[in-house]
Write a protein that binds this DNA or RNA. Structure first.
Lengths: 152, 152
DNA sequence: GTAATTTTCATACTTTCGGGTGAATGTTAC
DNA sequence: GTAACATTCACCCGAAAGTATGAAAATTAC
């Protein structure tokens, strides 16, 4: 039942479960309400009491829902897909070297200095890395490389 | 200055204030209720409508309170690990949220879209994160955050 | 030696980031 | 009420990163 803020649910199955649960809860609430309404008209319960019960009931529901929504964690980030080497594109020696330095947080210029190469060369390597990994940003490359165990 | 878990058990004085506030809120709600009740009897509003208004009103109050309460304890709930914190600079709720999205490989614009915020706001957050972590690039922030177990 | 690949470097251009400053609002602590 | 902080948003500017295309050495494989 871990509902995420980004989307409403992780999967269709979970979403269905969520909707079903909410529907059931609503149904219960309405049933309770109607029951009370019945007693209200049948036994002349005091209006104050009736309204109070309704108020408390919905206040409780609201607190419950709101609490859950607020607590709902900020684990919003990743698609969290169990990736498995989707491409046969293997990285070359140099590319792996550069990739590790990228993951270590170095800039292209720093990598160039470290490897005694031109900045343009590093840019070429990084772009080739991105192409092979199917990404277009270095942060994505880090994530993908981690999932593929290319970097620690 | 992360989330102060103490709202419910900080000090007696504060607790009293809290109770007082809640009492006042309840009083307001009841006053509103009574007003409605008056109109109810005076103008013969349909019972269903009346009950509906009451329900929605208290549901809203409940959701608001519950959401606030739920968000509060977000911080304390998970790790319970007294890991090293190298600097007293703690990241705020929002900053941690942004940091996780950064580590997941999203661009600032994508993060802004995801959180329904302005790009400028995200930039402010990211710069604050870098300052607090003592870095000056997002890739470095990812590395540092991972070492501090701020992100998986 | 030729072909394929890797590695290297270049230019040009666009987009994104990072850094600085300022500011309005809302919440919380005291 | 005041102080401190969190959150939001804006503008500017320069640096870094990303995109595209081309091409010259070096390496390896046949």
């Amino acid at each position: 039942m871990a509902v995420r803020p980004g989307r409403l649910a992780k999967s269709k199955k979970e979403f269905l479960k969520y909707v079903l649960f909410m529907g059931l809860l609503l149904a219960c609430a309405i049933a309770l309400l109607k029951t009370f309404e019945y007693y209200y008209f049948s036994y002349k319960i005091k209006t104050d009491v009736f309204i109070g019960v309704v108020a408390v009931l919905f206040l409780s529901i609201g607190v419950y829902l709101g609490f859950k929504a607020g607590k709902k964690n900020n684990y919003t980030q990743q698609p969290a897909e169990p990736v498995k080497l989707p491409m046969e594109m293997e990285l070359s020696q140099r590319e792996i070297e550069v990739l590790k330095l990228i993951a270590a947080g170095f800039s292209n210029q720093e990598i160039a200095d470290k490897l005694y190469l031109s900045l343009n060369t590093i840019k070429t390597h990084t772009n080739n890395i991105y192409s092979k990994l199917g990404v277009n940003r270095r942060t994505q490359a880090i994530e993908t490389a981690r999932n593929l165990n290319l970097v620690p």
